[in-house]
Design a protein around this nucleic acid. Structure first.
Lengths: 202, 202
DNA sequence: CCGTCGATTGACCGATCAGTCAGTCGGTCG
DNA sequence: CGACCGACTGACTGATCGGTCAATCGACGG
């Protein structure tokens, strides 16, 4: 029975991983459930044995990854040892390294879910919002400590920070910028430096 | 004949405007061509008289708006009278006011085209890129003049700037932030101030 | 008036695809 | 060994929807 359920989980995982690859390559709307089954080397019907429907597969891909991001954001936010810059760098690094490790997952999360104001985006509205709130809280805390200037609304700063990261990932997804390890490290540095230090010459 | 062709253009426009409303409300992938025809008060087949296919309708909605944006960006970039802050504010104001005036158009442009790394996004890759390049050029010029610090790559700064705007619009589209005229003006101010001045306390 | 031609109509066709389901297989337990 | 049960299969169905096209309308010129 333990073997059975372990084998089950492996099959489920195989289907999920196949779905990520297929969604990333052809887009959720332009792939067929049979593509997922073929990619996983599994019969068509088995997808429906493990998942309610096609939407549920995408939901799970998204929630799995976004959940990890939320943990990192909320953990960084609560850490009293870190400066705002360090907290923001930590969050940005996690997202950017998620891309380095699994670009397909991040592409699906961003392109197929986060950015769809209709359909999927709307369904996960609250979960996405939690991430933005966490980042805004990092800014708000730092403002209260006098570390960051108080005249920019934290929610606004959070939106720009997150928007910046998303656009960086999008450039990588499009293949418009290189995304080698060094590029990724520099992207985090530049993002934090731009937002905190500002572009103005000294 | 003049009347005829004017009437033609009006019908075409009516279909295009109907399509914008329908795309914004239900999303390109989840609406039917018959929805567009119904919304325009026109027979199904007439859509195909004026447009090659469903994709072509979306293409035109996108290109029409993005073309205006490109003009503003490239004009601002070339204006020797303006500071970098003024140029960025000009671009941001145009985009933000485009949203104020026609939120549905901007929603379609961003959600249905710009953010689709697959399918549509790929087709308009070069056009989208021209916008990013223009913004990057504004930064590069200012760096050459010593107005902005030289150690952040211009293309990178442009990406963060554009990503910030897009995320602001997305928040408005989701209804997560108010988008009244005052909010819009402040959004531009805060964005430029954040990017140029930086968040660090003085 | 009538012929021409583009605008307009909407029924229809064909392709696609999500989801179903009747059945097979193979391991486990009594 | 046989009954049971859940994993697994994939052909099939029903619905959706993009795109076609033959027919009609109506303005205009001759």
């Amino acid at each position: 029975m333990a073997t059975r359920s372990a084998a089950n989980l492996e099959k489920r995982r195989a289907i999920l991983d196949a779905a990520i690859r297929v969604f990333a390559e052809r887009g959720f709307n332009h792939c067929r459930v049979s593509d997922i089954a073929d990619e996983a080397g599994v019969a068509y019907g088995l997808v429906y044995h493990y998942f309610k429907n096609k939407d549920a597969v995408l939901d799970e891909v998204f929630l799995e990854r976004w959940g990890l991001m939320l943990e990192v954001i909320e953990q960084a936010q609560a850490d009293p040892e870190l400066t705002a810059r360090e907290k923001l760098a930590k969050v940005a690094t996690f997202i950017v390294e998620s891309y380095g490790h699994r670009p397909d997952v991040m592409q699906v999360v961003i392109v197929e879910v986060t950015r769809q104001a209709n359909t999927f985006g709307r369904r996960h509205w609250a979960t996405i919002q939690r991430g933005h709130d966490g980042i805004a809280q990092i800014v708000a805390d730092a403002q209260a400590r006098g570390e960051l200037r108080p005249d920019i609304p934290p929610s606004f700063a959070g939106i720009v920070f997150y928007g910046g990261i998303e656009q960086i990932l999008t450039s990588w997804i499009f293949g418009l910028m290189p995304a080698e390890p060094d590029d990724r490290r520099r992207a985090v540095e530049h993002l934090v430096e731009t937002l905190c230090g500002g572009l103005d010459a000294r």
